[in-house]
């Protein structure tokens, strides 16, 4: 089976020859081609070169357009770029420091905004170069993460108590931005849309269910209506919101390492495809090929057959190639 066939079959509940493997790579990928992260973030040719070479070298089943937020800068947020690490939104100059500015924000056209357009072109190139044999993954920000990018995460966390109606307004806005961006990514060739919603792990289950979940659900349903499959990744400790994450209807729930896969399986039921989730730093980067292989075996044991191999979050820069090979080797040597 090609990687593409393997992933699609797993998501469709059909037989596969071995476990699919879909780790997140960004800085690790750009290091494979000897370029700086600034180039990866700003030039889709570099992103595509890095993703394709990394996926071929390590025999991943997907290529991905994942990178830092493209929505926030095209909405008007100030982003600081660094030479060789991911850009960051500048919170001290947050776009929505004044909440009333939200009423004046428009939904950016992904083909007009330079940062979103770069990703669209990257997806088209990934599709052209790798789409025959590998799944092409697009990426958007989830409502909590995207809103944190616009409002500032420190302030947004206070808004949950200070101004709940603003939370609903800004989450609603970011879902519209995300769906419009995703629609164009799907047209460009994305098979799967990843949703990154890192800030969602910072709130209580009560806040997650009351404020975050309804907008994540709206996003997931909208992506399905557009014909895409959906991968959800929430960085950090999600143990308290596993049940909610499992009821969104995502095709893949990609878990960070703080959430044990057996807890996720118990919370989400036998049919949910889980992805993950060895500790990217302690197990993958700092481990040995033998310990990586053993850690993946434990993840597989906990997750059961509906499982895709990956790390809990991005494969860190400086991870030994032998450790990444060991992770893939586990997938190749095991059927679900």
């Amino acid at each position: 089976m090609s990687g593409r066939e393997r992933v699609i079959a797993m998501l469709d509940g059909k037989a596969v020859d071995c476990l699919p493997v879909m780790p997140i790579t960004m800085m690790f990928a750009v290091d494979q081609i000897g370029k700086k992260y600034y180039e990866y973030a700003t030039d889709y040719h570099v992103l595509a070169d890095a993703q394709v070479l990394t996926a071929e070298t390590f025999d991943f089943d997907h290529v991905s357009a994942i990178a830092e937020t493209r929505e926030a800068p095209d909405c008007g947020a100030v982003v600081e770029y660094f030479d060789d690490q991911p850009p960051s939104v500048v919170e001290s100059r947050a776009l929505l420091a004044d909440k009333s500015s939200l009423a004046r924000l428009e939904i950016p056209d992904p083909l007009a905004g330079p940062r979103m357009h770069d990703r669209i072109k990257g997806i088209a190139l990934l599709k052209e170069r790798a789409g025959g044999g590998k799944v092409v993954e697009g990426w958007i920000e989830g409502p909590c993460g995207a809103s944190a990018d616009l409002r500032g995460i420190n302030t947004l966390m206070l808004d949950f108590y200070d101004d709940p109606s603003f939370i609903r307004d800004v989450f609603g806005y970011t879902v519209e931005v995300g769906l419009r961006f995703a629609r164009t990514q799907i047209s460009a060739g994305a098979d799967i849309i990843g949703i990154g919603d890192p800030a969602a792990s910072l709130v209580s289950r009560k806040i997650y269910e009351e404020f975050v979940w309804p907008y994540e659900k709206r996003l997931v349903d909208g992506l399905h209506e557009l014909g895409a499959r959906v991968r959800l990744h929430i960085c950090g400790n999600t143990r308290h919101i596993l049940q909610g994450m499992g009821s969104l209807g995502c095709d893949i729930v990609d878990l960070d390492s703080a959430a044990p896969l057996d807890e996720a399986r118990a919370a989400m039921g036998p049919d949910q495809v889980l992805l993950g989730n060895i500790d990217p730093v302690r197990d993958l980067r700092d481990g040995t090929p033998e310990s990586v292989y053993a850690a993946m075996a434990e993840c597989h044991r906990q997750a059961g057959p509906r499982f895709i191999v990956g790390a809990g979050c991005e494969v860190p820069r400086d991870t030994p190639a032998a450790n990444v090979h060991a992770l893939v080797c586990y997938a190749h040597e095991h059927a679900p």
Binding site: L158, Y161, L202, V203, S204, I207, R239, H240
Partner: peptide, 14 residues
């Protein structure tokens, strides 16, 4: 003990 998360800690600190 995971009774408080970031919003609760921030409003308490404030």
């Amino acid at each position: 003990d995971c009774e408080f998360f970031i919003p609760e800690v921030l409003i308490a600190a404030r």
